[in-house]
Design a protein around this nucleic acid. Structure first.
Length: 363
DNA sequence: CGTTTTTGACCGGCGC
DNA sequence: GCGCCGGTCAAAAACG
């Protein structure tokens, strides 16, 4: 019987547990826990109609599939880590051979502070508290806060340091955001709080470049440069340097007042619509890690384009490479999501709410 | 009144 | 050595 069930077409646990093709790689881990919730709260009714049985079977099947996918994901992650460490070693070896033992060689001749006034060094000292322990932290990867800004690496020599600094550039990412042409503000909403500390007109671009610093955490080394594209003034190019060593600020009730350089007081500037504005660019990410993934995606797509001979007809090999890269990216994004505790919590909350909503006892 | 933005000046890197 | 240029500082102004 259970008229409730038959009257619930949405009983299908319509939480997208039934993975669309694309999410096949990302769902397993994230859904593992909520699935338990479902089983505990949901399958207890003793009576099992055929539909329920079918659903249960389906659920089990998906559980199995999820497990398989989770294993595959783990394997891929392991391979990725191995490759990454290989790459890191190669880069380190390259730096060692071209520059020698670096920092020690010329030590001492450092300018005590590259800043102007003498008191400045305090600033950098305070800005690198504890967390910045990775002298050669090549792209901190998934470790938020494992990144030391290039300028603050404990390298005290001249050239070697420079070279290493350049090789650590991967931590610089770019984000292209489509902005309303009438909106003159250089505001890129990315979920963080930014404080503008400078603006400059650069040579190669008539539009001024704005410099932002993360204002949420005083010691956060992340900097952001925002400038309109020289080619298309409707495109804002945001360049991020470094990685946040703190959690993302809680989502503001009124988002528009929080990100983008504390735009709350930009009365002189036209009020930008709260909409994140992301037509030409990957949608404004609320998770900076996603942002970085998007950057990586773009970079890797560029690589693919370069591999294909830039302009020449793309061969099957390039297409295959592109496909491979897409898959890898999807997997990386899935890993990022599944590692994010807040994402899991949100998922659990959503599932719980949904289940309660559907529950026959709720009435 | 506290915080943020503006903006001119300063500093260091780099090319010539 | 010199000049250009990008990045940053910091005082003053603006804002809520």
């Amino acid at each position: 019987m259970d008229p409730w069930i038959s009257s619930q077409p949405s009983l299908s646990l319509d939480l997208h547990v039934g993975l669309p093709p694309l999410s096949r790689h990302q769902a397993p881990v994230a859904l593992a826990k909520p699935k338990v919730l479902v089983e505990e709260n949901f399958l207890q009714p003793p009576k099992k109609e055929p539909e329920v049985a079918a659903l249960e079977t389906e659920l089990q099947r998906m559980s199995e599939e999820n497990r398989r996918l989770a294993e595959a994901l783990t394997a891929v992650a392991a391979k990725y880590e191995a490759l990454r460490s290989q790459y890191t070693e190669m880069v380190a070896a390259g730096a060692a051979t071209t520059t020698g033992p670096s920092s020690a060689s010329e030590g001492g001749s450092v300018s005590p502070s590259r800043k102007r006034k003498t008191s400045e060094s305090l600033d950098t000292a305070a800005a690198a508290p504890g967390a910045q322990q990775h002298p050669h932290g090549l792209h901190g990867g998934q470790h938020p806060g494992a990144a030391a800004p290039p300028d603050q690496m404990e390298c005290t020599s001249g050239e070697p340091c420079k070279r290493i600094r350049e090789e650590c550039k991967p931590k610089v990412s770019k984000l292209y955001v489509h902005a309303d042409p009438s909106d003159l503000s250089l505001v890129v909403k990315d979920g963080y709080q930014w404080r503008k500390y400078g603006q400059k007109v650069t040579k190669d671009n008539p539009c001024p470049r704005a410099y932002f610093r993360c204002s949420f955490a005083p010691a956060c080394p992340v900097k952001k440069k925002v400038q309109r594209s020289a080619d298309d003034s409707t495109i804002l190019v945001a360049t991020y340097e470094g990685e946040h060593n703190h959690v993302q600020p809680p989502p503001a009730p009124s988002q528009q007042a929080h990100d983008g350089s504390g735009a709350s007081k930009n009365a002189a500037k036209p009020p930008s619509p709260p909409r994140p504005a992301a037509a030409a660019a990957p949608a404004t990410p609320h998770h900076p890690q996603l942002l970085h993934h998007q950057q990586q995606q773009q970079q890797q797509q560029d690589v693919v384009a370069a591999m294909s001979g830039g302009g020449e007809p793309v061969g099957a090999a390039a297409a295959a490479a592109s496909e491979l890269i897409r898959r890898n990216l999807a997997e990386q994004m899935a890993m990022t999501l599944t590692r994010d505790p807040s994402f899991k919590a949100a998922l659990v909350t959503a599932l719980s709410g949904r289940i309660l909503e559907l529950s026959p006892t709720k009435d």
